[in-house]
Each structure stands twice: as C-alpha cells, then as structure tokens.
Amino acid sequence: MNVSRFLGKSILYLAAFSAVFPMVWTAINAFKNRVDIVTPTPLFLFTPTLDNFAYVLGRESVAAGLVNSLLAAGGSVLIGALLGLPAAYAIARYPNRWSADIQFFVLSLRFLPPVAVAIPLMVIWLDLGFYDTRFSLIVTYTLLTLATIIWLGVPAFARVPKEVEEAARVDGYGPYAVFLRVALPIASRSLIGAVAFAFVLVWNEFLIALMLTTSDAKTLPIVASELTQLGRDVPWGILNASVVLLSIPPLLLIGILSGLLNNAFRRKSN
C-alpha cells in the first residue's frame, strides 16, 4: 500500500466518521442522565436510561407536534403526488411548445427565498382566518411537494421505454390507461424515490412552519427547536432524545433516496 493510497483512504474514512459520529453521539447522549452529560470529560461508559425518551414521548407538545408533522407532510405529499405525477407524465410524454417554460417555471419556484413566501402567506392566512391551522400548512407545503414531484417525475417518466407504451396503445389502451397501467407501474421505483424526497423536504421544513404556526399546528421541528432554546438549566438529555426522534423518519428513507440517486445516474451512462 503506497502513501497516497493510505492517505486517500484515511481521508475518506475520516469523512465517513464525521458523517455519522455527531448523530451517534447525540443518540448516545439521549440515553444519559443529565449528570452524565454535564461532565468535564465526555463519558462513553455510563448507566443508560430511557427517562429522556419517556419524558419526550409523554409530553403533550411533542405528541401534538408529531401528529401535526405527519398530517402536514402526509397531506401535502399526497396532494402533490396525485396532481404532480400526472403533470410530470404529461410534460414527459406530450411535449408542446410551452414544455420548457413550464419546467423552468416549476424550477424557478425554488428560487423564491422561503422568507419571501412566508411573510405574505402569514398575512394572507391571518386575514382569511386560517393562521396556525393544519389546513393552511398543508396548502402551503403543497407548493413545495407539487413542484418537487413534477421536477423529479419528468425524468422518471421519460426513462420508460417508448416502445412499451406504443405496444399498449396498439393493444387498444387509451391514453389514460397507458398512463395508469403501463407508465406508472414501470416508473414506480423512481417515482417512489421522488415522493420520499418530497416527504423528507416537508418533514424537515422549518422556516415556513415557524412563521405560519404559533400553537395549534406546530410541527415537530418547531417543538424540537423550542426545546433547544430552554433556559439556563438545560435538560440536555431530553433535547438529544427529541432530536433523535425528529431525525428517525428521514433516516429510515435513506435507502429509497439513495436508490433514486442511483437510478438517475445509471440510465444516463447507458
């Protein structure tokens, strides 16, 4: 093993360590009593406790945040998928002279600074009487999920072999049947990735939720961030536990998301 090889591998392993260690350390701390966290020297050996998780899961605000997060993310992703997947298919398979403009418009929504959307929306929802409701949060998030699912869905549908669709058409399938029974199942793996990505995006979203909710509709990231802003006598174990809880759903989807990445590049190289 020569020097550059050793050096290169060391850097890679160091980067990999840096990628996972902070979260692992947080998870370890989530099982510590406060006295074991507030030590002059970081402790690796300690008596684990489930108190932190029990406390977090037993708190009403966390339970409410969890429900709100699931409803906001689930609802907006569902609407985004129901409307976005057909739209993506239409763009991929029925190009017209506005297709490029439509795609650019969808992308350009990403240019909007979130704060620039959130401030006026807060005023609008206040005026309409829907401020701090799950409804307003779902509608607002639909802007995110719909744009994301269209953006990622177009290449997924474009990768479906045209011949298969032609064959189905020859067999007497109408255009809607071709979409539902042929294109959708064949592209489903990439599409699941796109939907999972939209879910993670909304689940992790912070700024809009912070501005559009104050109590009733607060999502989990807001609840967690409020815990992190507690006063002097910080309950570190509880904080670590709530951060772990918040991070679990996206981490569970990591396999699907890396599959999406692999698909996107594998086909390009062929």
Partner: peptide, 22 residues
C-alpha cells in the same frame, strides 16, 4: 460510503444544527 455520506443532508436542519451546537 455513499449511504454514509448521505446521512448529514437527510437530517432535518434543526437536528443538524442542534447536534453541532452541542
């Protein structure tokens, strides 16, 4: 390593921020 390198970006930013703040 691909899977490992994806972990940080998938974390909610609130989590990432807290983990490093601590």
């Amino acid at each position: 390593l691909t899977l490992v390198f994806l972990v940080p970006v998938i974390l909610p930013r609130v989590s990432a921020a807290f983990v490093w703040k601590f």
